[in-house]
Design a protein around this nucleic acid. Sequence first.
DNA 1: AGGAGCACTGTATAGATATACAGTTAACCT
DNA 2: AGGTTAACTGTATATCTATACAGTGCTCCT
Lengths: 222, 222
Amino acid sequence: MDLTPRQAEILDFLRRHRDEQGVPPTRAEIVTAFGFRSPTAAEDHLRALARKGVIELKPGASRGIRLLERADEYLSEAVQLARREAANEASLPLVGRVAAGAPILSDPNVETRIPLAGDFFRPRAHFLLRVQGESMRDAGILDGDLLAVHQTPEARSGQTVVARLDDEITVKTLRLRGGIAELLPANPDFAPIVIDLSRESLVIEGLAVGLIRGGFGSPLIR
Amino acid sequence: MDLTPRQAEILDFLRRHRDEQGVPPTRAEIVTAFGFRSPTAAEDHLRALARKGVIELKPGASRGIRLLERADEYLSEAVQLARREAANEASLPLVGRVAAGAPILSDPNVETRIPLAGDFFRPRAHFLLRVQGESMRDAGILDGDLLAVHQTPEARSGQTVVARLDDEITVKTLRLRGGIAELLPANPDFAPIVIDLSRESLVIEGLAVGLIRGGFGSPLIR
DNA sequence: AGGAGCACTGTATAGATATACAGTTAACCT
DNA sequence: AGGTTAACTGTATATCTATACAGTGCTCCT
């Protein structure tokens, strides 16, 4: 059963009071916080929250209000957003096969999240891309590696870039000469890709800023 | 000023009560927990803790006991140990140049800690080793990379190992044939190392289980 | 039309709680 | 030898606190 807006307000207050004061509130403190004129108003709300299973009331005990785990599901939107942002700052989305046309960080492209903060890399990484193929082998970037990518359209000649070409994502070294862009592989078995910028477009998704191999449960040892 | 052993016990109880019950205890609850026969015993202890600045007492408020930040400095040894272990589980020591003779994880060898849990890798990593040299270049292990290492003396032929040879740490592929061990580089510019196990000893420090490049503030982009 | 749930007001009270006051015992410092 | 501090016992009480009981007005469902 869902909480009413008012009950969610009360729950938010319980959480805030606990976090800021270190103690759950009394009925009287709820009354003053919300401007009630009767302790029963607070009592009724607590009963409702307990009935819905988001808090536990200890009979007889003063301040005997306990926020249960599942209370997290009923956070106000503002608090939920803040939590999600905090979680995002401590982990990176892992992008596998990129669907044609879709933005690289759109939901269906994200396989999972890796528990590593983006600012572990410099400049900071915005996502991890699972490398496919051996075209950058001689740069130490192997098939299956996770490439840490700083999302930016700006790239200089010589940098290792993540580019989108005909709705395909590719990792290569960028070389710019006049109106010509070259995407150079680091493997003699592969041919460079040459793009005439006056006729074709090249979308730079980001820069390679790091690499992770062998994590997330895929063993390196066979 | 330091806490007395008894005061530390009381503080531990306050913390445990808060964590387990979600509410600080009343004087009466302290009394029953410690077998006191007078509420004043609890009151006196709380006053002492407040005077020493580890808790804050709110006059008049029931359960008005607040654990302050600096209370963490006065944790019991058991709790401190548990905390340190929890922190270690969420980060990996980075080992740079290894001092001759010293165990690989001894204090002076550890440069810093990297905020990544060891069980991010399978089997779990115990430390990260900063790779020196290009001898494993063709295996995608470059100079400066951080190699995630699972600490174990057991290695099978074909695995990438971290070995100690004449007090030098080296990363190579292991090959075992009868009483002969070979440490094979992955770079034609380097020669294999052959060890006759009946005459020389080879210490395996661990197995390579993963790799990180470009993190910890060292930019990949130039 | 009426029952149920929500969100309250208003009053009352048993008992939970903090806290003062008066002691005791032992260790430690000077 | 005397003062201070820690760690308690024992009693008492103002007041804080949970909670019961009796209502009101509103909305939503059937």
